[in-house]
């Protein structure tokens, strides 16, 4: 197991480096210039040239790449062109916010996806299953930005029970303990719902299909023949087998959640990496784009690594193939 993980981590490091290198050159190939916003009648071209020199933008792209790469390898993400602050500092402020949203929506995603899928499979073709199918397809077909706006309209404007934006109330500085936690949780409900539950519809369909396949297996009949209650048959014998193919989907869905977070963060004015990324791309803030890209790449690879590990833990046949037993 340890060797398997080590090998995967080393492979992943190489992969991350390749992703970042490609991003670097693509950014420089793309039209646009980080200095474009200084083109102003009051700023002389000489000043802009001087700034260009200070940021190292006047050197050949290859040289810029090596300077950036050398810093990056030492853990120095560079300085944001736009904010004139170390990128590391900016990330340290925004990553926890994005993680809070992602973890909450991932939890909702897994919980709703697996539970609804299993319940549907167990009561196949029942009224519950049919209703579930219709609702799932409906939610699955709705673009998340539209769903977000509709929910804001309903819960924030009409009913006024949930905040429409930001991570906490303006007066939250005076709160602590449980009131602060509740305030933050209230702000989390709508964005996490849009991000997590809406995608859960897809996961539930996979889980339902996988579960229905497993419920046809001979060993399920064996479990029933032992006299096990239906609850144990479903939750112990069927679930673990049905979860094996679904774990792959879970690993692949992490990038989708992160990608969705960009839009959802923008709509809900969530001070996370998504909003930062969008701004950085508009202003060609290369160091920020690269650093955010790095974080996302690591998360995606981590998601896949977790999925592969989960796969091996759930299915003993995989580990014995790895160790050649």
């Amino acid at each position: 197991m340890a060797a398997f993980l080590l090998r995967r981590i080393l492979q992943s490091l190489v992969l991350v480096w390749i992703v970042l290198t490609i991003t670097f050159f693509l950014l420089h190939l793309a039209p646009g210039d980080p200095m474009a916003r200084y083109e102003h009648p009051d700023i002389s071209p000489e000043t802009v040239m001087k700034m260009r020199g200070q940021l190292g933008l006047d050197r050949p792209v290859i040289e810029q790449y090596f300077i950036w790469a050398a810093g990056f390898a030492r853990g120095d993400f560079g300085v944001s062109f736009r904010y004139n602050r170390p990128v590391g500092e900016i990330l340290a402020e925004t990553i926890p916010n994005t993680l809070r949203l992602t973890v909450a929506s991932m939890a909702l995603y897994v919980l709703f996806g697996l539970a609804l899928g299993m319940m549907s499979a167990a009561r196949r073709y029942s009224a519950f299953d049919r209703l579930n199918t219709i609702v799932a397809l409906f939610v699955y077909s709705i673009p998340s930005f539209w769903l977000a706006l509709m929910l804001i309209m309903l819960f924030s404007l009409k009913l006024g029970i949930l905040p429409s934006s930001h991570m906490q109330s303006l007066d939250s500085a005076s709160m602590s303990g449980i009131p602060l936690f509740l305030d933050r949780a209230r702000h989390l409900v709508l964005p996490a719902f849009v991000l997590g539950v809406a995608s859960a519809a897809g996961l539930a369909r996979y889980m339902r299909g996988s579960m229905i396949d497993v419920l046809r297996e001979d060993y399920i009949r064996t479990a029933r023949a032992k006299g096990l209650p239906e609850r144990s048959v479903l939750l112990k014998h069927a679930f673990r087998n049905a979860a094996i193919p679904v774990v792959t989907i879970l690993g692949m869905s992490l990038p989708f959640l992160l990608g969705g977070a960009v839009i959802v963060e923008k709509i809900f004015s969530w001070p996370g990496m998504g909003g930062l990324m969008v701004e950085a791309i508009y202003t060609r803030d290369y160091p920020v784009v690269l650093a955010v890209n790095f974080v996302v790449a690591v998360m995606v690879i981590l998601g896949n690594l977790l999925a592969d590990t989960g796969y091996a833990v759930l299915d003993p046949r995989i580990m014995s193939k790895e160790t050649g037993r």
Binding site: E217, D218, Y219, T222, A223, A225, G227, R240, N241, D315
Partner: peptide, 29 residues
Amino acid sequence: MRRVRGNDISIVFQEPLTSLNPVFTCGEQ
């Protein structure tokens, strides 16, 4: 009826290859 199954009446199926759950040890089952 669940108390009868596996306790008063039990069954051995034709397919030993597929009748055991692949993700649990034989002993556990």
